[in-house]
């Protein structure tokens, strides 16, 4: 078990395996997102009360899912980095943060756009909306902390600690609608309970959620690979890899 973690933690090994996995996740992401958005936006039926504005759910719910999942992944990567000193975990955490912040913003923005026609307001300081705004600030804090240190190691430790402590906000976001009176309704889409909508509305949502996750995994693999090359640029295997590509390119030109 521990040997596997350390193997996964070797930048060179990770660089190799991620090259093989990456195209599959990109293909899945494109396929699922195209199918899901066409189905959800054009073919799924409108809601009996909200009409077509209900379709915002096909962006809002997957973005909100991802916003929370990315933060949890960041915190777990931070823990792995702090305890086992695995550098790849820290590189992954570093590249995840901007996507997580973007997804949180998308969830907040699409929620505001949705709130105007349904609730009659775009913002309300209720527990769900406020805890989601705090999540955005936590993401921005993690990104800022990484930039605030001259030493990369200090920056990584500070960002990891903030991610691990900030993960407390995730259950608060999830259960805010159950613990307190909020304007936001309880969850429509959970993995554990029966769907609150018929299959022809629910299936495109599942496809969109899976598509968003595939996109996240593909993008994280790609960006972690670039981060490995950047941070390990003095290592011999990286130099051999880059030099090999330069030689190939020159051979191509002279041919």
């Amino acid at each position: 078990m521990w040997a596997f973690i350390h193997k996964l933690g070797s930048p060179k090994w990770f660089y190799g395996i991620s090259a093989k996995l990456q195209p599959w996740f990109w293909a899945a992401a494109v396929l699922l997102l195209v199918t899901g958005s066409l189905w959800g936006l054009a073919f799924a039926p409108a809601d009996y009360q909200q009409g077509n504005s209900f379709r915002i759910i096909y962006v809002h719910v997957p973005a909100a899912f991802l916003a929370q999942s990315i933060f949890i992944s960041m915190a777990v990567s931070g823990l792995v980095f702090m305890v086992w000193k695995i550098k790849v975990a820290d590189m992954a955490a570093a590249v995840m943060a901007p996507l997580g912040a973007a997804m949180t913003f998308v969830a907040l923005f699409s929620g505001a756009v949705w709130g105007v026609p349904t609730w009659g307001t775009w913002w309300m300081w209720d527990a769900r909306l406020t805890s989601m705004l705090i999540l955005l600030f936590l993401y921005l804090g993690v990104i800022a902390l990484r930039g605030a240190f001259t030493s990369r190691d200090s920056a990584s430790r500070a960002a990891s600690v903030l991610a691990m402590v900030g993960v407390i906000n995730i259950p608060i976001i999830k259960y805010s609608v159950d613990w307190w009176y909020t304007l936001h309704q309880p969850a429509s889409f959970t993995l554990t309970s029966r769907p609150t909508m018929p299959t022809e509305m629910w299936l495109p949502l599942v496809i969109m959620v899976l598509g968003f996750y595939s996109f996240f995994i593909a993008l994280t693999l790609m960006r972690t690979r670039s981060e490995i090359l950047r941070r390990e640029s003095s290592k011999r295997w990286v130099q051999e890899l880059v030099n090999g590509q330069v030689v190939n390119a020159q051979a191509e030109e002279t041919r």
Binding site: A46, Y48, T118, W119, Q185, T196
Partner: peptide, 18 residues
């Protein structure tokens, strides 16, 4: 001064509601 609508977590097409 202001009335806001809440809605529940259930969605359905008009035909199903009918």
């Amino acid at each position: 001064d202001k009335v806001l609508a809440r809605h529940d977590e259930n969605y359905m097409p008009p035909e199903v509601a009918q």
